[in-house]
Design a protein around this nucleic acid. Structure first.
Length: 466
RNA sequence: GCCCCGUUCGUCUAGCGGCCUAGGACGCCACCCUCUCAAGGUGGUAGCACGGGUUCAAAUCCCGUACGGGGUACCA
């Protein structure tokens, strides 16, 4: 195919959410797949929406994801002259006309005439003159229908009598979405429009304008299935927590986010789900995109993220996780323990809780269940702690293997003495970490150090007997 | 209401008329491994919305119904 030109055209409404990110990704994939251009256009026809803050809210997440654009960002608000010209052209050719009715008035007229809600062309032949507050409406043909061949959905046909004479210029003179969309896509020579299904119904209107303006060949349209919440409603900023920035701060990796997003509505022919972006680019095609909406599943996202976290080298992991850790954490220790952490977390923000015990001065809070199980139910615990204190004070702390055999040795000896299985590791874990669950002890103990280890064993013993 | 789109395990999907007693992934359950929690391994659970056609043959094609969603703004 001729090199495609696609665009991601979000409205600057606060922040970028995962649904928009998915649209951006599919556009980007398509452009990269066929060696075309990916264009960023900020859809700020409503002047109030233009501010640096809002622009950053779009640009920063795209950068984080690594979805680089070849042209732009362009601003719709800066293309006002072209829009005005197009509106003038439509008015001059009689395909659009002025209307001084308010929305409320046209609603009332419809009701009085016993027609369905909406606008019925009341001002078509009233000869209204342009003035402040007057809108321009497009004259939709009475007869016939408009057909759009969607790359994903197939042929979509809308009868003209279900369309009203929609507004293309507001009372304040600004162009509406339909008009700006047609003009900008034409001027930017967009070949493929890839966006959410919620925009499918607007396509015939844009096509009508396109033809009325004599623009020639229409871009190819591809409407992606919507991303939905657990109620199967389209992801919305107001009710769903879907800001991309939130996922960034929770510790999702951009590669994982992209990979997961690519899986919603699309799948590789070989069914391999988790794979490098480069491979996804190679395999991507719009024809393989399916039609039904997809639930944005945090559980699966977490799984994908964990796979990516596990794939990091220890050094990469330590470097990446650093900003989620308190400043007093020793990164060299984090790197040494990286593999154990990587298989236990699915987001980077979870890392600290697995490591905390190594970097605090003392354990002041023991998990009560773990204490009960290891210290109270394990009747030998007091003896184990005493023995552990004695044995470990004579062992060098530089070799995990020495620590292991010393600790397990205590358990074996006591087992023989008592004639029942004695676990030495469980009480040790609770004494050192305050918790019943955690990473393997031996390597971690070399970083905790002998002094803290012995103090914590003593503290636990004191608490047990006191 | 009207218009448009959709419907395969709980979820994401494979399937584009016979290879399907429907495959994979996530989740869940069990077992193995194991001080713990994980990770890993093995096995299991669960689905073609319904009704008519077409055809020798339908998850796959057609029609209808039901259900879900989207749109219906001087938002985009």
């Amino acid at each position: 195919m001729a090199t495609p030109r696609v665009r991601f055209a979000p409205a600057p409404t606060g922040y970028l959410h995962v649904g928009s990110a998915r649209s951006a990704l599919f556009n980007w994939l398509f452009a990269r797949r066929y060696g075309g251009q990916f264009i960023l256009r900020i859809e700020d026809t409503d002047e109030s929406k233009k501010s640096q803050e809002f622009v950053d809210a779009i640009v920063e997440p795209l950068r984080w994801l690594g979805l680089d654009w070849d042209e732009g960002p362009f601003f719709q608000s800066e293309r006002r002259v072209a829009h005005d010209l197009a509106i003038q052209q439509l008015v001059d050719s009689g395909q659009a006309y002025f209307c001084d009715l308010s929305a409320a008035d046209s609603q009332r007229l419809s009701t009085e005439a016993g027609l369905r809600a909406g606008y019925h062309g009341w001002s078509r032949d009233r000869g209204v003159a342009d003035a402040a507050g007057v809108v321009v409406r497009f004259r939709v043909p009475d007869e016939g229908s408009t057909v759009v061949d969607d790359l994903i959905r197939g042929r979509v046909k809308i009868a003209h009598d279900t369309l009203d004479d929609f507004v293309i210029r507001r009372g304040d003179g600004s162009p509406t979405f339909f008009l700006a969309n047609a003009v900008d896509d034409h001027d930017m020579e967009i070949t493929h429009v890839i966006r959410g299904e919620d925009l499918l119904n607007t396509t015939p209107k844009v096509k009508l304008l396109w033809e009325a303006l004599g623009y020639g060949r229409l871009p190819q349209y591809a409407h992606l299935p919507l991303l939905v919440n657990e109620q199967r409603k389209k992801l919305a900023k107001r009710r769903d927590s879907v800001a991309l920035s939130d996922f960034v701060s929770q510790g999702f990796l951009p590669e994982a986010m992209l990979n997961y997003l690519a899986l919603l509505g699309w799948g590789a022919p070989d069914e391999v789900e988790i794979r490098p972006l480069g491979e996804i680019v190679e395999l991507f095609s719009l024809e393989a995109v399916n039609k039904s909406s997809a639930f944005f599943d945090l559980v699966k996202l977490a799984h994908v993220n964990q796979v990516y976290i596990k794939a990091l080298s220890a050094a990469e992991f330590a470097q990446t996780v650093a900003s989620w850790l308190p400043a007093h954490y020793d990164l060299a220790v984090v790197e040494a323990l990286a593999p154990e952490l990587q298989q236990r977390i699915s987001t980077l923000s979870e890392a600290a809780s697995w490591l905390d015990w190594i970097f605090v001065d003392e354990i002041d809070d023991y998990d009560s269940k773990a204490w009960q199980r290891a210290m109270v139910k394990g009747r030998a615990a007091p003896t184990v702690l005493v023995e552990l204190g004695e044995v470990l004070s004579g062992v060098p702390f530089d070799d995990p293997e020495h620590l292991r055999s010393a600790v397990l040795g205590v358990g074996d000896r006591l087992s023989e003495q008592i004639g029942a299985r004695v676990m030495s590791q469980a009480p040790l874990r609770v004494a050192l970490t305050g918790s019943g669950a955690g990473i393997p002890l031996w390597e971690a103990m070399t970083h905790l150090g002998k002094e803290k280890t012995l103090l914590r064993i003593a503290a636990a013993h004191k608490r047990l007997s006191g």
